[in-house]
Design a protein around this nucleic acid. Structure first.
Lengths: 397, 397
DNA sequence: GAATCACTCCAAAGCGCTTTGGATGTTTGA
DNA sequence: TCAAACATCCAAAGCGCTTTGGAGTGATTC
């Protein structure tokens, strides 16, 4: 009997949205005739059809289907008050049924907002390394964006082209604001972005920039001062610092903290025990190996990354020494999901601060900045937690 | 003398684009009067002004500035032939001068293309871990996109909402195609995306899906077969496998490779020596610690991740054993930039395949798929390289 | 009974771009 | 010499949405 019904033509029709319209029309038609069993059949077919096909309608089609103007439908969907509640419900149901999704580009063009946030990652030619912290930061931020209905855009910017790139981002209008990653000392981008007028939040800060801008950062100086002091109190006197690249603001601050702690205890930093490089495992291994071979080797290491700390551990083992007994290690720990520092008992004594949490907070901050642009810049200083693990002990030598 | 010139008003004018117009007008004005030194002055001012301010014009303003229609300007900029070469050059110069950038949303709306690629990262509630591979993959892909003028969008999709999310992506029209990350065995997303008609490339493959789709993958089975065989040839008989989660396709294939190698040499896989978990350091440590405490401990480990291998190394040291002499480790190595496996001498004997390279290739593949949608799906199988490092040696026991 | 008001709804303009379908003048070919 | 064939350019429509400025009802007010 199915062949005799008009739905055969439905299935041959080309546009999906049209098919759905026809299904609806069929139901109306038979309903008006009182042929409820046929309505039932059509409705079942429609359901199966829906499960199988993936169609989409636009506002115009939706409004035609509803016999309403686009204005009313748009208002109903966006929660404006000048719509009858019955009408609104009809609209919402139809939008659901017809699988309506507003086109982002059109919406953006009409409203002037992009409903997207950009993440700008500086890539330099010399240092090909991708910041390992990035994935977790993004994960934290992504959740916040998703909740707010924002998209997330990524842009890799070669550091020679920064000015051009940021102008581009602003002018092309693909995002409403950006998160600035990897700030260096005296970072030019901040002044640039303020001038351009693109809302932004810096993940980190920039020493020597005296402009009002929004940021979220870990108290790197404080953390490293605390960590170094912890080692000093355990009796360590020769404490090495394996830092990240010190043109990066975070690394600069960590060195300051380290030096502060030494000076506060009447010691002065020994350049021979201080390194500043890309924070890899091999870097930690090599630096530690060299230093441990000195006449007066360090008895403790302060590392800027858990990966570097792993390298130090390798060197310590290789030298036949025992961690915590012969050599102590304390490291910064970004609480990366794939590099957890042990579980109940931490492997390394660490200064821990979740970068994922920071990502979420940075996102929230930026979103609220975009929502109320007149507000003064916000900032947030996170404290790293000192976690006692099994990599530190009293100085032996 | 400057105060007497009209440019004072220029600097008070509000719209930046307008200012530039006035500068240009000023120059024309004085040029026509023959006052070339004033033209010079204005031009200098303009240059300084440009360096300091960041303005942007849209097509309309640009075309008014040029006394041309928007049509002609658009065509000139997009390389259409029906424009006089002189006109085109004038347009290009003006676009440069006025710092014109086409609005992406408008362009996208008009052309129907988004000039953006989406990366969809499944996030599950149970496994909060962010794939450490992701950053490097993105870095590789990002370069390819930048070259082609594409943007990159990130979407975190909770795995319960997959169907909805992908429909959304298609309907909202923010991207022209997507890269699918983290395929599992019999991954539903592939059929879904084919039905939706959104171009995509899978990073990895999906066993049991017999549909034509595009993918790029490492020969995981082959690599692990090779690696295991390498250990067998060194005399190892009790070889443990510390795999990733085996509902993930890559892990499933790795197990197959491992088992193949064993069987090919008349051995059968021992469930007690096989684990499948999220690939963390602690996982490697714990599993190795337990296994090494057995009556007949394994003499070698095959790991799915360098991070896990590091955990195994820790357990080996802690047990007072020596790597390569007492226990061998071979691991998969994604050649992550922040987790390099040593330098000249690799730390671990490894099956190496650069995920960054894969990212670049995946991106190129997707872009060409979008450029010519009629083409058949493409695929690419990358071979992992066996790198002999210092973590393997002949079986001792 | 006219004026006001609240409630619903709509037509049309506009966001910034591309693209169609000419219009205008200039060469070319037989 | 006249039509056909370029070579250049433009006006206007359209992409899918929001939003302005009403219009058309009844109901309420004075």
């Amino acid at each position: 009997m199915f062949e005799s019904l008009p739905f055969v033509s439905v299935c041959q029709s080309s546009a999906d949205a049209e098919k759905l319209n026809i299904f609806a029309a069929l139901q109306n038609f038979y309903a008006r005739k009182g042929a409820l069993h046929v309505v039932e059949i059509v409705s079942n077919l429609q359901r199966k059809f829906k499960a199988l096909w993936t169609y989409t309608v636009n506002l115009k089609q939706l409004s035609e289907y509803l016999n309403l103007s686009q204005t009313t439908v748009s208002r109903a969907l966006n929660g404006y008050p000048e719509v009858n509640e019955n009408t609104r419900n009809r609209v919402l149901k139809a939008a659901q049924d017809l699988n309506y999704r507003p086109n982002t580009r059109a919406k953006g063009l009409a409203t002037g907002r992009a409903l997207a946030i950009g993440h700008v990652i500086p890539v330099s030619n010399q240092h090909e390394m991708v910041n390992p912290v990035f994935g977790d930061f993004i994960a934290g931020a992504g959740e916040a964006y998703a909740r707010a209905g924002y998209d997330m855009m990524l842009t890799l910017v070669p550091d020679q082209e920064e000015v051009r790139a940021y102008q581009d981002i602003k002018a092309r209008g693909t995002v409403d604001g950006i998160i600035v990653h990897g700030p260096v000392i005296n970072d030019e981008r901040i002044a640039l972005l303020l001038r351009i007028g693109l809302p932004f939040v810096v993940h980190g800060r920039s020493t020597d920039v005296n402009l009002p801008y929004s940021w979220i950062d870990v108290n790197n100086r404080g953390a490293f001062e605390r960590g170094t002091q912890f080692l000093i109190e355990l009796g360590h006197r020769r404490i090495a610092l394996l830092n990240g690249l010190e043109h990066m603001d975070f690394a600069f601050r960590r060195r300051k903290g380290y030096e502060n702690a030494l000076r506060n205890h009447g010691m002065s930093p020994d350049p021979a025990l201080m390194r500043s490089e890309e924070m890899t495992e091999v870097y930690g291994y090599r630096a530690a190996k060299e230093m441990l071979a000195r006449d007066l080797p360090p008895t403790a290491f302060v590392c800027s990354s858990i990966i570097t700390a792993i390298g130090v551990r390798r060197a310590v083992h290789e030298a036949g020494l025992v961690l915590a007994r012969d050599v102590s290690i304390i490291t910064h720990d970004d609480a990366l999901s794939y590099l957890e520092n042990g579980d109940d008992v931490p492997i390394f004594t660490a200064l821990r601060s979740s970068v994922r949490y920071a990502g979420g907070e940075a996102a929230e901050m930026l979103l609220s900045l975009i929502a109320s642009p007149k507000h003064a810049p916000k900032s947030r200083l996170l404290e790293a937690e000192l976690i006692i693990g099994r990599s530190t002990g009293p100085a032996s030598t």
